[in-house]
């Protein structure tokens, strides 16, 4: 079943086509890789799905519904959450608080019930704290819960971002270069984590990543972009040996 369909998407920035008539679709429960050289348009695709950018043309369909008209803050309630290439944590909040922000769209408290700390608010606060701590445990960083997010090393910050995207219980999660800045063993743990999210939580994953061995190891299907266009799509073996892909990467990273 098609979970996310990107249909003929074009995004222009003053004449520059960052994304050019791009189509691909992600099946439910799949780990789907979106790769390509720097500036190929991968992050722009994420920003179109997140609704930060209004595509020049094309449609984005999630779970059978077109989401191209939604507002950015409505996307998480539709079931999609994401991380950012350049970590966008809430710096002056603790790790736990960062995760709690991922829950605000799903809590029913309002300013009055919170101001007077009604018992419903207490209950809800306790519940979301427990849930957030559960996620921190899965990520193996529960000891960092009460430390400031900005005080964490880069690798941990990346995990906190994933945690924050997870607390909303998304059905699709978009990860923008999650392994960037991680060392080998951290990347291995990340690979395990991503597989776990899919296998145990059933989350569909759209992955943008430069670490080719990570992509080739965990993705079932891959779309390769260059200059905004799709140049190849398919299983890792096919993509690896595709002449156009090798050409695009020539002089860049080697394909493992």
């Amino acid at each position: 079943m098609e979970h996310l369909i990107v249909d003929n998407l074009t995004m222009e920035f003053g004449g520059l086509k960052a994304v050019d008539s791009l189509s691909f679709s992600v099946k439910k429960g799949e780990i789907y890789g979106l790769i390509g050289p720097n500036g190929a348009g991968k992050t722009t695709v994420f920003n179109c799905v997140s609704r930060f950018y209004n595509p020049t043309s094309g449609r984005i369909i999630f779970e059978g519904k077109e989401i191209t008209k939604l507002k950015p803050h409505e996307i998480i309630r539709a079931g999609i959450s994401r991380t950012f290439q350049n970590v966008e944590l809430f710096k002056h909040m603790t790790v736990l608080e960062n995760l709690l922000v991922g829950q605000v769209a799903f809590t029913r408290e309002n300013i009055l019930s919170a101001a007077f700390m009604l018992s419903s608010v207490r209950k809800e606060e306790r519940r979301i704290r427990e849930e957030a701590m559960e996620i921190l445990k899965i990520l193996n960083i529960e000891d960092k819960a009460h430390e400031y997010a900005s005080a964490q090393p880069y690798g941990i910050q990346k995990l906190v971002e994933i945690g924050r995207a997870l607390v909303s219980q998304p059905r699709l999660i978009m990860l923008d270069e999650p392994a960037a800045g991680m060392n080998h063993s951290e990347t291995d743990e990340l690979a395990e984590l991503i597989l776990k999210l899919r296998d145990e939580l059933g989350i569909t994953i759209l992955l943008v990543e430069h670490d080719m061995s990570l992509v080739m190891n965990i993705c079932e299907n891959i779309c390769v972009m260059n200059f905004g266009k799709k140049i190849c799509e398919g299983i890792p073996e096919k993509v690896k040996s595709d002449p156009a892909v090798i050409e695009a990467y020539l002089g860049g990273e080697e394909i493992a």
Binding site: K71, I75, E88, F90, E109, I111, M117
Partner: peptide, 29 residues
Amino acid sequence: WNIIRTKVGRSLMAMRDSEIAAKAMGINV
């Protein structure tokens, strides 16, 4: 004190620290 340590306070601080991440988290900025 109650407001800042619950949903509204967290939304305000999130928006202060990163407007785009706040939006992605469902906060109507």
